[in-house]
Design a protein around this nucleic acid. Structure first.
Lengths: 148, 148
DNA sequence: CTTGACCTTCCCGTTACAGGAAGCCCCATA
DNA sequence: TATGGGGCTTCCTGTAACGGGAAGGTCAAG
């Protein structure tokens, strides 16, 4: 198989496949003309990688998972540990984003959104959110900080 | 004020402040010795930036917001539009992460996590999730794809 | 033989900084 | 006065995970 075939079948762009070879995730053979010659096993790995990436695993996680995938004597506990760690990171990210969402939607709802310059969003950003709390309700609000 | 002062007061690292000058978000004066000389207005802007960034606004969003912040004749509608667009992006990210979370926790719960090699997580990644759906319950599951 | 679709490598750009080197500057103390 | 220890400066490199595009070789069809 040439690269376009495995690209279509794995759902990964050709560029990404070349990159994965470059960083050593896969090692396709080479035809005499220099073209990459992918085996079925390469396609399996690429599909595996595609799915793992779509679940948000980092490349390094993928490297680990791929090694476990190929190791017939692995312990499922090792796989589960990697997955659990990633799940925890996802949960953290969600929590951070929800905090942002809460604060931001709070500010937005307080903004008239008309032609006048008065804006609770800007003053909230200026003087330290929340710019007009309305009684005790929302659980977490204000204070996020995270790369989005 | 020197850079360390504004760093402490704004909550931003000195490196970040230099970077913000480099990309034109702030324009502090210079003392004769070459040191940056920050005014109160610079500190205000940096604090504003710090808060906006902690809400997940991109640097380009911050540039826009800062311009509106400094424009006394702005329309609050313009601010609200930027904020709403960002809120929508946040909601999208949350949705993507929740889909990942659902799929992943599903796989994890199916994995024994012992010394045996059999692993529903790996086989789920291999053969296209979910690897053993259990009746109709979870709303969305499987299918995420997002930079995490 | 030519055209067009492949394939190759190589290099730059992305986001928002962090780390660190090399080298001034300033103040306090011995 | 020398010396130390913080500051401060610029400049360069690296990060994650590729995408875009250039320059050029290859292959099958007409």
């Amino acid at each position: 198989m040439n690269i376009k075939d495995v690209a279509q079948r794995s759902g990964l762009p050709a560029k990404t496949i070349r990159y994965y070879e470059e960083i050593g995730l896969i090692r396709p053979l080479r035809a005499t003309n220099g073209y990459r010659a992918f085996r079925e096993s390469d396609l399996h790995k690429l599909t595996f990688l595609s799915r793992a990436r779509s679940l948000g695993f980092s490349i390094e996680d993928c490297r680990t998972l791929l090694a476990l995938y190929e190791d017939d004597s692995r312990a499922s506990a090792d796989v589960k540990a990697v997955a659990n760690a990633h799940l925890a990171r996802i949960a953290e990210k969600i929590a951070g984003l929800r905090a942002m969402e809460a604060t931001l939607s709070h500010l937005i709802s307080a903004c008239a959104g008309d032609a006048r310059p008065d804006c609770p969003i800007l003053s909230g950003l200026e003087t330290g959110l929340p710019a007009g709390a309305e009684g005790p309700e929302g659980a977490q609000c204000c204070g996020a900080s995270q790369r989005v």
